Computed example of a mutant assay.
Amino acid sequence: MKVSTSEGRMTMQQEIAPIAVRPSTLNGISELMVVSHYENDYGNAVRTLNAVRRELAALDADTPPYRLRGLKREELSLMGSVALHELYFGNLGGYRRAGPNSGLGRPDWHEVPDAFASEIAADFGSASAWRREFVGTAQSLVGGSGWVLLTYSRRQKRFWNQIAADHTQAAVDAAPVLVLDMYEHAYQSDFGANATAYIDTFMRNINWETVLKRIKAARNDQPPPNEDPSVTTDIPSLSVEELAVQIANGSGVQIVDARQRNHMSRFVDLMAGATWRDPDCVEEWIAELTPDKPVAVYCSWGFDVGRNVTKTLIERGFDARFVRGGISAWYALGGARALRPAAGNM
Rank of each mutant, 00 (worst) to 15 (best):
Y183L: 02
T196V: 09
N207Y: 06
T232C: 03
F202T: 04
N205V: 05
S237W: 11
E227C: 12
T210V: 15
E209A: 12
T233D: 12
V245N: 04
I215M: 09
H185V: 09
I235T: 11
N207T: 00
I199L: 15
Q188A: 15
L212T: 00
M203E: 01
Y198S: 14
V211S: 04
V240D: 07
M182K: 00
H185Y: 15
A217H: 12
L212E: 11
L243I: 01
S239M: 15
P224E: 09
Q246C: 05
L212I: 01
D200K: 06
D221N: 14
P223F: 13
D190E: 14
P225H: 05
R219Y: 07
V245S: 15
T233Q: 14
G192E: 04
V240P: 05
D228G: 05
I206M: 10
E241P: 05
A186T: 08
K213H: 04
V211N: 04
S239E: 10
F191Q: 01
D234M: 11
V211F: 10
N226S: 10
R204K: 14
D181F: 01
M203Y: 00
D181I: 06
F191V: 01
Q246R: 15
N205C: 04
R214E: 14
I215D: 05
I247R: 13
V211E: 09
I199M: 12
T210P: 00
E241F: 11
D181M: 10
T196A: 11
V211T: 08
E241W: 13
D221G: 02
N207E: 04
E227I: 08
E241I: 11
I235A: 06
N226E: 14
T201N: 06
S230P: 06
N226P: 01
V240R: 08
D228H: 02
A193P: 06
N226G: 12
S239T: 15
D228S: 08
T201S: 05
E241Q: 15
R204G: 00
P223E: 08
